[in-house]
Design a protein around this nucleic acid. Structure first.
Length: 493
RNA sequence: GCCGCGUUCGUCUAGGGGUCCAGGACGCCGCCCUUUCACGGCGGUAGCACGGGUUCAAAUCCCGUACGCGGUACCA
């Protein structure tokens, strides 16, 4: 089979992290089978259209390393890839269904439909529908005379096209992830196919496009599962073979429920892909993490790059239950990937971050050494700039928590140490020597290592943690280090 | 409410009748390494939602209950 899959987001906002995972699974599936990955923009709801959303989607996919084979701006043999540009096609197919007697025109206003629902509710129907029963008492081409229908259309009256959903029928389909799923049509409305503004609904557009774009597998979120019978009915009405269906488990918030913007962000989880870009996350870490959120290759492996994931990914290994987003695990992945990158790879990116902070970088070698010293310690690349700020600027204040380690005898010890290293020549001012000097001081004062180490760290870096201090001091240089010790002695006594 | 889909350590998951008094990973805790911060290494903690069946045998199959999630629009 020629595998063709699509990622079909609607441009109603920035790309959600859940959407990104859906895209990823589609992409992995496509690449695994040597197939085609299509991006289709589902912009049929003009009232929710957000300017720039489409570009955000494209940028996000590019950032994670997913290559679009066909899509807006990219082209392909099945375009256009924006649904708003395919209106004529939908009208054609909607008309076909009406002509075949499987759909009909309906002229009811929103108010009239609400009225109908109210009325039915009052008479004891808990979930009123526009269905095979109620459509008989509504204003549509099934109840109105042909004359009347034609008159209304000619008159430019607003209308929708509705699917004639059979009264009592079981719709069954195979889901690649869930197995056989069945619904009874008695729970379905006569679905609107064409809206009164001339745009198709998702249901029509998605079926028509998936068929005309020769999509072989529909891989989408579980929120679509209940709509699938409508789609199956449509394929049947058109006489088309439906694509293989696969409904992905949803990504959940740690407190339960959908990973909504408000909820997630209050729990420290960015929801939009652009926040991960702006937040300087490693794209390969995000990809690896997301791939494992609802899928696993079945062995004990955890780390795989995009290429390996493409090779490993299969739908039968996708899990059924919702997956809670675990930010700490993401950070673990992020650390892994940072450690995996070489200093050379990191350098230009770190430089950019330092530039943005306005730091002056003495030399390329200097920067390389800083990165080396911090490489195993940072969780996110921007920490090279925050944790390593003291390599580029004299600390202006001291971390409050760290200050607790500045005890009454700290000044005395630091003073003694300063005097010792002041006598070193520039050449002697290197890590091993600096460490020896420290030993001599603590021996002389008969105190433990930490007694001098912590105050020294605070004085030099302003922080209570950070890279190996001796090579750091060597890098910063004698003059600056002694200056910082003097400042600390003044400020902290 | 109705319909649908789920449910294995706190979290992501492996496991699909006997090899499982359930394996890995994150987290957490402890130890080792390091007379600093980390990395790393080793170990520990903790789970088959519940109740019935079927079977010699059930985390695994069936039924029910509970709980969670999704859907129920001229939104996608």
């Amino acid at each position: 089979m020629n595998v063709r899959v699509r990622f079909a987001p609607s441009p109603t906002g920035f790309l959600h992290i859940g959407g990104l995972r859906t895209a990823l699974y589609n992409y992995l599936f496509a690449r695994h089978h040597g197939g085609t990955f299509v991006l289709r923009i589902e912009d049929t709801d003009q009232s929710r259209y957000v300017e720039g959303a489409e570009q955000d989607i494209i940028d996000s996919l590019e950032w994670t390393g997913m290559e679009i084979d066909e899509g807006p701006g990219k082209g392909g043999d099945f375009g256009p890839y924006r649904q708003s540009e395919r209106k004529a096609t939908y009208h054609e197919y909607a008309k076909q269904l009406v002509d075949q007697g499987q759909a009909y025109y309906a002229f009811d206003t929103v108010e009239e439909i609400n009225e109908m629902r109210e009325r039915l509710k009052k008479s004891g129907n808990p979930s009123p529908k526009y269905d095979s029963i109620t459509r008989q008492s509504m204003k549509n081409s099934l109840t109105l005379s042909q004359d009347e229908v034609e008159k209304r259309m000619a008159n430019g009256d607003e209308y929708v096209v509705r699917l004639k959903v059979p009264r009592k029928e079981t719709v069954r389909f195979e889901d690649e992830i869930r197995g056989t799923v069945s619904f009874d049509t008695s729970g379905l409305d006569d679905q609107v196919l064409l809206k009164s503004d001339g745009m198709p609904t998702y249901h029509l557009a998605n079926v028509v496009d998936d068929h005309t774009m020769k999509i072989s597998h529909v891989i989408r979120g579980e929120e679509w599962l209940s709509s699938t019978p409508k789609h199956i009915l449509l394929y049947k009405a058109f006489g088309w073979e439906p694509p293989v269906m696969a409904h992905l488990p949803l990504i959940m918030s740690p407190s339960g429920g959908k990973l909504s913007k408000r909820k997630a962000e209050s729990e420290g989880i960015p929801v939009n892909t652009k926040d991960y870009i702006a937040g300087n996350y490693e794209p390969d870490a995000l990809v690896n993490f997301l791939a494992y959120l609802g899928w696993s290759p079945g062995d004990d492996s955890e780390i795989h790059d995009m290429e390996e994931l493409c090779e490993l990914f299969t739908l039968d290994r996708v899990s059924k239950g919702g997956a809670v987003f675990n930010h700490k695990k993401l950070m673990w992945y992020n650390e892994n990937y940072i450690r995996d990158h070489t200093v050379e790879e990191l350098e230009p990116r770190v430089k950019e971050l330092l530039d943005a902070e306005g730091y002056e970088i003495p030399s390329e070698e200097y920067l390389s050494k800083v990165i080396e010293l911090l490489h195993e310690r940072v969780s996110k690349i921007d920490e090279f700039a925050s944790m390593g700020d003291f390599f580029f600027a004299t600390p202006e204040s001291y971390n409050e928590k760290a200050l607790k380690k500045w005890k009454t005898n700290s000044a005395e010890l630091v003073q003694a140490y300063k005097e010792k290293i002041s006598e070193l020549s520039g050449e002697e001012f290197e890590a091993a020597m600096l460490k020896d000097q420290l030993k001599e001081v603590i021996d002389a004062y008969d105190v433990g290592f930490g007694k001098l180490m912590m105050p020294l760290r605070i004085a030099v870096s302003g922080q209570g943690f950070g890279p190996d201090l001796f090579p750091a001091m060597e890098l910063i240089g004698k003059e600056e280090v002694i200056g910082r010790l003097n400042t600390a002695l003044e400020k902290l006594g």
